[in-house]
Amino acid sequence: VVSQCEHCRQEKLLHEKLRFSGVEKSFCSEGCVLLYKQDF
């Protein structure tokens, strides 16, 4: 499944979907998940 990563904003293969404040977010890698959590 290809989707837009919430952190790097590129269309890539889906690595993980997480829920932040009740909204589902898509990420392409574990690195982007960690960076997004730092900024959140």
Rank of each mutant, 00 (worst) to 15 (best):
C5Q: 00
K25W: 00
E24D: 10
C32L: 00
E30C: 11
Q38H: 15
G31M: 15
Q4W: 14
E16H: 08
S29W: 02
K17E: 06
L18Y: 04
V1K: 14
H15M: 11
K25P: 13
C8G: 01
Q4A: 15
L13Q: 06
R19D: 13
E24W: 07
K37G: 04
Q10E: 06
E11A: 04
G22E: 10
E16W: 07
C5G: 02
D39M: 10
Y36G: 06
F20E: 12
L14W: 00
L35E: 13
F27K: 04
G22W: 01
S29F: 14
S3L: 02
L34A: 14
S21T: 09
V1D: 07
L18V: 15
V2F: 09
V1Y: 12
C28M: 03
C5K: 02
Q4C: 14
V1M: 15
Q10R: 10
D39E: 10
E6D: 12
E24P: 07
L34P: 07
E11D: 12
R19Q: 11
V1E: 11
E11L: 08
R19A: 12
G31E: 15
F20Y: 04
Q38G: 06
S29D: 01
K25H: 13
L13W: 01
V23M: 15
E16R: 10
G31K: 13
E16L: 11
C32M: 03
L13E: 10
E24G: 04
L35G: 13
L18G: 10
Q10D: 06
K12R: 05
H7A: 07
R19K: 14
K12E: 01
S21G: 13
F40P: 14
G31R: 14
C28I: 12
V1N: 13
S21V: 04
K12T: 12
E16G: 04
H7Q: 11
L14D: 02
C32Y: 12
Y36E: 08
S26T: 02
K25R: 08
F40K: 11
D39K: 15
V1R: 10
S29I: 08
S21A: 13
L34W: 11
V23G: 10
S21Q: 08
S3D: 07
E24C: 08
E30Q: 12
S3N: 09
G31A: 11
S29K: 06
R19V: 13
K25V: 05
V23H: 06
H7G: 10
R19W: 13
S29M: 02
H15T: 14
V23N: 13
E24V: 05
S29Y: 02
R9P: 02
C32D: 00
H15K: 09
H7M: 09
S3Q: 05
E30I: 15
H7W: 12
E11W: 14
S21R: 08
H7T: 01
S3V: 13
G31F: 01
G31Q: 14
K25L: 04
V2K: 14
K12V: 04
R9S: 13
F27H: 11
F27V: 03
Q10A: 02
E30W: 00
C5F: 05
Q10Y: 06
S26A: 07
E11I: 03
F20M: 11
K12Q: 12
S29E: 05
K25A: 06
L13V: 09
S3F: 08
F40V: 13
V33L: 13
S26Y: 14
G22Q: 00
K25S: 00
H15W: 05
H7P: 01
F20L: 11
C8W: 05
K25D: 01
R19G: 06
G22V: 01
Q38V: 01
K17A: 03
C8T: 00
F20Q: 09
C28W: 00
V2M: 14
G22K: 01
R9N: 06
S3C: 09
Q10W: 02
S3W: 00
C32S: 00
H15N: 10
S29G: 02
H15F: 11
R9V: 01
V2A: 09
E6V: 12
K25C: 05
H7R: 08
R9A: 03
L18S: 06
Q4E: 14
G22A: 01
Q38M: 05
K17F: 08
F40A: 13
Q38I: 05
K17M: 15
L14E: 00
K12G: 09
F20S: 10
E24T: 06
C8S: 03
S3M: 11
L18C: 07
K17Q: 08
L13T: 07
F27Q: 05
G22T: 10
H15Q: 03
V1C: 09
L35V: 03
E6S: 14
S26G: 04
R9L: 08
C32N: 00
D39W: 05
V33E: 09
S26M: 10
S3G: 15
K12W: 01
D39Q: 14
G31N: 13
